[in-house]
Nucleic acid binder design. Structure first.
Lengths: 106, 106, 106, 106
DNA sequence: GAATGGTCCCATAGGC
DNA sequence: GCCTATGGGACCATTC
């Protein structure tokens, strides 16, 4: 597939933001960029692992509920509806804010 | 909110799995079922909140990386590729294990 | 960019569903496939035009409302909230259906 | 539904544009504003329904095409490319017109 | 495995 | 002119 090489990334970086002064000609900054890249990637990976763990936990809960005689599909609908309720609350507040601003009450 | 009544839940629960003995006719267990339902729903909601928080954190990291001159899209490709690598590694190990077991080497 | 040629499309088509009997070796069916492709594309384009026209009409309405002293942002929130209400209704029905099925009342 | 009162609307309306003379103190125009609001919202909703219907029709066409062995993703690319072509054509014509006008040939 | 629902990213459009 | 907000599309996980 070959979508992109590390070199491209760094090239892109220098092009996009020649931030650090005194940088040029494939010298050190590349190193720094590499380290930074590594750090970003690893932070993302760490969080995605945790995210996956949570997703697994959620699955387990549904499985447990099912084992206790609850209907998974119905449970999901309930969770979804409660989320919608929360969203609507937020929307309502947004509307109120809009009015408050428009009326000079903000 | 009140989109559904406890009675509905319990009716459904009993129908799906008349697990606990002595349950019937709107008696006490209903209460328990309701509490259980509430507990399941709240556990799921709690975890989904955490999941969303993590997703937000990840977004923030990408934003930060972008602010440091990295190309977001490219970063995502890297993360995806590394994930694939990890998956392949795991698959390979699983395969090896399978062989080991089959050969009585486990 | 070169994402896909007409040839690919047809190749894919034959591979995916060798439906018509007696087809092979780049003969007639290609022709038919081409016509069919053209027809699909044009139907889509026609509908998308209409869709765009409707979007424009909606824009006009908001502009008109604004000209009549209404706050566009607030209007949009209202429309969105009413849509959410409708969605919730649907969810509720979905939940009821799920229960009905589970209880053998479907 | 009732997320907002007519009074809110009118308050906002008057605040935003005290256009019509003689309006004030919760008198009649309130009614008119409410009706107007209702009309705007319903017109928007009506058009959005139609828009959604069209979107569904488009989906159906893609599904039908898929059922005939075409690759949906590829089809979308084709539609997109043709749209770009059309846009470029339009731009070119606009450019030509501009020149024509500038040269007194319009 | 087919289909459905959910999540996420991007691209465009609209407002300030 | 930027910048947010919204809609559309792709992808992934789950269900039957």
């Amino acid at each position: 597939m070959g979508v992109m090489t590390a070199k491209d990334i760094v090239a892109k970086r220098n092009a996009a933001k020649p931030a650090e002064p005194g940088i040029g000609h494939n010298s050190r900054p590349t190193l720094a960029a590499k380290d930074q890249l590594k750090a970003f990637v690893e932070r993302v990976e760490r969080l995605e692992e945790e995210k996956k763990a949570l997703a697994d936990d959620i699955r387990d809960i549904f499985a447990e509920a099912k084992g206790n005689g609850f209907d998974t599909k119905a449970l999901r609908v309930i969770v979804r509806m409660r989320k919608q309720d929360a969203d609507q609350r937020r929307e309502l507040e947004a509307l109120v804010d809009t009015y408050a601003v428009a009326l000079g009450m903000a």
